[in-house]
Amino acid sequence: MNIHINQQPFSMPDAATVTDALAAFGAKPPFAVALNGQFVARAEHASKALNAGDKLDIVSPVAGG
Rank of each mutant, 00 (worst) to 15 (best):
residue 35 L to R: 10
residue 12 M to V: 02
residue 36 N to M: 10
residue 23 A to Q: 13
residue 42 R to K: 09
residue 17 T to W: 02
residue 20 D to P: 09
residue 45 H to V: 06
residue 42 R to F: 07
residue 50 L to H: 12
residue 13 P to E: 00
residue 17 T to H: 03
residue 7 Q to P: 10
residue 40 V to M: 08
residue 50 L to G: 06
residue 51 N to R: 15
residue 46 A to Y: 08
residue 46 A to H: 12
residue 35 L to C: 10
residue 39 F to W: 08
residue 14 D to H: 09
residue 43 A to W: 04
residue 33 V to D: 04
residue 16 A to S: 09
residue 45 H to S: 08
residue 31 F to Q: 05
residue 51 N to D: 11
residue 55 K to F: 11
residue 55 K to G: 10
residue 36 N to A: 12
residue 32 A to H: 10
residue 22 L to M: 04
residue 50 L to R: 06
residue 24 A to T: 06
residue 32 A to E: 05
residue 13 P to H: 03
residue 45 H to W: 15
residue 41 A to F: 11
residue 25 F to L: 02
residue 44 E to Y: 07
residue 47 S to F: 10
residue 42 R to P: 04
residue 33 V to R: 08
residue 11 S to A: 15
residue 10 F to P: 06
residue 49 A to S: 14
residue 9 P to M: 01
residue 14 D to E: 14
residue 27 A to N: 02
residue 30 P to T: 03
residue 24 A to K: 07
residue 38 Q to V: 15
residue 19 T to Q: 02
residue 20 D to I: 04
residue 12 M to R: 01
residue 50 L to I: 13
residue 27 A to Y: 00
residue 18 V to E: 00
residue 26 G to V: 02
residue 55 K to M: 07
residue 31 F to Y: 13
residue 24 A to Y: 01
residue 10 F to V: 03
residue 11 S to E: 08
residue 22 L to D: 04
residue 37 G to P: 10
residue 43 A to H: 13
residue 48 K to V: 14
residue 32 A to W: 11
residue 12 M to Q: 00
residue 11 S to Y: 06
residue 48 K to S: 14
residue 46 A to M: 06
residue 16 A to V: 01
residue 9 P to I: 09
residue 24 A to Q: 05
residue 39 F to N: 09
residue 12 M to W: 06
residue 54 D to G: 13
residue 21 A to W: 01
residue 34 A to Q: 12
residue 15 A to M: 07
residue 8 Q to K: 11
residue 40 V to W: 03
residue 11 S to W: 05
residue 51 N to P: 08
residue 29 P to D: 05
residue 21 A to F: 01
residue 15 A to V: 05
residue 43 A to Q: 10
residue 48 K to P: 07
residue 39 F to V: 13
residue 34 A to L: 15
residue 32 A to Q: 01
residue 21 A to V: 01
residue 39 F to Y: 09
residue 28 K to G: 02
residue 39 F to I: 10
residue 47 S to R: 11
residue 37 G to Y: 14
residue 10 F to L: 03
residue 49 A to R: 14
residue 15 A to I: 06
residue 44 E to S: 12
residue 37 G to D: 07
residue 55 K to S: 12
residue 42 R to D: 05
residue 54 D to I: 05
residue 19 T to N: 12
residue 14 D to Y: 05
residue 54 D to Q: 12
residue 51 N to I: 13
residue 48 K to W: 11
residue 9 P to Y: 07
residue 34 A to M: 12
residue 37 G to A: 07
residue 38 Q to C: 14
residue 52 A to V: 04
residue 29 P to F: 07
residue 8 Q to M: 13
residue 47 S to E: 12
residue 46 A to N: 08
residue 13 P to Y: 00
residue 52 A to R: 14
residue 45 H to L: 08
residue 53 G to L: 11
residue 12 M to S: 01
residue 29 P to H: 00
residue 33 V to H: 05
residue 49 A to P: 09
residue 11 S to L: 02
residue 49 A to W: 09
residue 31 F to M: 04
residue 28 K to N: 06
residue 47 S to D: 13
residue 49 A to G: 08
residue 41 A to C: 14
